[in-house]
Structures are given as C-alpha cells and as structure tokens.
Simulated assay, not measured.
Amino acid sequence: MASVRRRGTTVAVLLGLLLTVPACGPVADRQARELRVGYDSLDGTRAVWPPRGSLAGDATATAAVTEAVRAWRSPIDDRVHLPSSGILWSGAVDGAPLALVAADVPGESASWLLQLTGRDGRYEVTRASEYTDPGYLVYADVLPLHLPDGRRYLASGRVERLLGPDGRALMLTDGLTGAVKVPDCRAVPVTATLRATESLPRGRAADRLLDLGVATVDPRYPLVRDDTGSGRRALDGLDTCVLADEQGPFGSIPRRIGDRDAPRSVPESWPMEKVAVRAIGEMTLGGGNDPGDLEQLTWETDAGTMTAVVYRPAGDGTPVVSPADRSNPLQTYVLPVPGQPLVVLTWRGNRDASLSVPPGTPRLVERPGLVVVPMPASRQTFSLATAEKTYYRSAGGR
C-alpha cells in the first residue's frame, strides 16, 4: 500500500487497484437500478471484494437489499449513489438473512458501511457507520459487523489470515468470521496478513487495526488503523466509551455542516489513524506523595491532527482525559480532575518561546513546554510569544 493525502487525511490506497465499472448499455442500466454484488475492484488479477455469501447469487435477495438501501437516508438526509456502491456479503448467519453494503454517499464525500437484516423477504438497515473518506471501504481489507452474538469481521480477498484480539487466528467462512469476543469499552488489536498481490509483491505480514469496542455507537466507525502499533500502547488502560463521550477526546468536536453543528454525524474529532502518545510530565494532586503521569494523545482525523491530554494517577486511580484540541502552537486543554479542574498548556519548548499567564495565577507545574494552572473562575487569556508571532488561547469560566 502507499499513502496519499486526501482532504487532509492520510489514507491507505492500493497501488495498481483497478476499478472496472461499465459505463453504458444494459449492464450500466441494471447497475443504476440494482446494487452490484461484490465490487469491481482488482489488485492485479485478484478480486478484492468478490461476491460472497450463500445469497450472493440470489436475485430476489439482491433486489430486496437494493430496495432497503435506496430507501435509507444518512443523518443529514443524503442518499446512497447505487452505481458506485456494492453488496460485499449476502448470506445467512444463524438462519437470519444478512447483507453488508459499502455505500457511497457523495453528498457527504463519505463511505457508509450498512448492515442489513432480512425478515419475511424484506431487508432493513440495522447498523450504519460512516467512514469519512470517500471510497475507503472498497480499499479496506477488514470490515466490522455487530450482531447479537458479538463482533464479527468480514475480510477481503487479499486477507490470508486474520488474528483476533487474543492473537489467535480467526476461522473465515466465505470471508466472514464467527463471533469474536470484543470488550464494550476497550481498544483491542485485530491484525491481518495480506497475500502477495500486484500492489504488495511481498504481501504484508501485519496490517494492524484497533477495534474501539462493541459499545461504539453508530454512525461512528469502530476500526482505527494502527500501522505501527502506537495506538494500542496509547490507549492501554483507557475507557474508549469515555474517550468517545461528547466531553472526551474523540467525541468532543462536533461536525459542522454549513454554519450549524451536526450532532448526529460523526464528530470531527473521531479518529481514523495514527493514534499515539508521548509523556509530557508528572503531577501530584490532592496532597498525594506519588506523582501521576501527564501524557499527550495525538491522532489523525479527516479534519486534520487532533490532540488531548491524559492524566494517569499513581496506583490504580482512574485516568482523566481532556476534550480534543486541534493542533496548535499553543495547545490548551481543560482537564476535569474531580474537585480540582485544571488547565494544561503545552508548546514546543525552545529558548525563544515565552508563556504568559494572567497575573496572580499559580503554576502548579512548570517546565519547558508545559504549564499547569487551576481552572480560572472566569474566562482568561494565555499567550505564547515566539520569535515570529504571539499566539493567544483562552480557557476558564463556563
């Protein structure tokens, strides 16, 4: 795979991937009215998403899935473009009809993963998660499903082996795993071994992902790329439901459409890849003797780089996390420590940078590139003077 920049986000794109979409004639007319089964994507001669599942060749099931997808609308009332979408799997799980559709929603420049359940000859969309980069799902190699018996994964035709959270190989039947034990609110690894193909002549031994947990709510996509394994280390011991909360790092910056917030859409701060952490200092609170660790969490979204701070108390205390802050020369975080809310300010420390805080503000922690102060009762302004420019940030109050 190679990395390219698209709408400010690094995404994995296959070199040499060929999309063969008929442009005219009876086939094109059929595709305009009916979803294709599988997807017309090739890596060399290998089909990435061939038709799979026991109902892949069932015209009645395909028509019913198409009708349900045609009727579905996104949270902002956009519809699926059928000719550029496809049914990636259509079959039955535990006797119940199931279909998984990669849906192109061009009005939002996004891919949606639609999970449909059938009953009495009709299908309905029962789960819908948005990946905020167009076309990603048909380039992906592992896709998540959530069924009553737990998490399952659908693997592309390039996947030779898939390891679950416990490091054991998962059995694939027509590309679909059985039920996988995934916690509600904890990140766990999923690792694919990819076959040698035209775009990957040597294959790939470890294509790493993180599953943020089965409690991840729609329309948030639960899988995050973790190529280096840094995300697994960064999220160790953290509650992903807290991270996803509207006051947590991943859920705190809402998506805006036009001049309004879109609370039913995926937050702009929702992670896509490159989750990492670095230690920035230590801090002792509440008269304790043992200092806790302050860390800076970073990750990539479709809106750019986001950051937050994590305070890990000494011992078995519960970590405290800040809301997200967009990447900025002077990062400003509100850390909601119970009974003692704080403002954490970080910057790239050098001899030419000087931080100013409001007069009389006590500095609980001070070191190059880091200052921690109590949360002001009213809105206060902090400034960072550098050789080129002075940066201003405000925090405090309600």
Rank of each mutant, 00 (worst) to 15 (best):
S394F: 03
D141H: 15
D293T: 15
L82K: 00
E273T: 15
R348Q: 13
D149E: 13
P222D: 05
G315W: 10
G91H: 12
P249W: 13
A187S: 08
I253Y: 06
L364D: 00
G95K: 07
G86D: 12
E300R: 14
S129H: 06
P338V: 04
G231D: 01
W89M: 14
D40C: 07
P97N: 08
E246P: 05
A28K: 00
L42F: 15
I87Y: 07
D302M: 08
D149C: 01
G135C: 01
A47G: 09
A140R: 10
V188P: 11
S129M: 11
R202T: 13
A169K: 10
P329A: 12
A63P: 01
D43V: 02
D207V: 06
L223H: 11
S85F: 00
A56H: 07
V105A: 10
P51C: 07
Y391V: 15
G44W: 05
P219R: 05
A206D: 09
L172D: 12
A187F: 03
L100C: 05
P359A: 06
V357H: 03
A59G: 12
V11R: 12
P165R: 02
R33H: 03
L98R: 14
V321C: 07
V27A: 00
L88E: 04
W72S: 06
V310E: 11
D325I: 01
S74G: 03
V138C: 02
G107W: 02
R264T: 08
W72V: 07
D174H: 12
G157C: 13
T332N: 15
A56L: 09
W72K: 08
G53C: 14
G38N: 13
D207P: 04
D174W: 11
A56D: 05
P341Q: 02
L162I: 12
R367M: 10
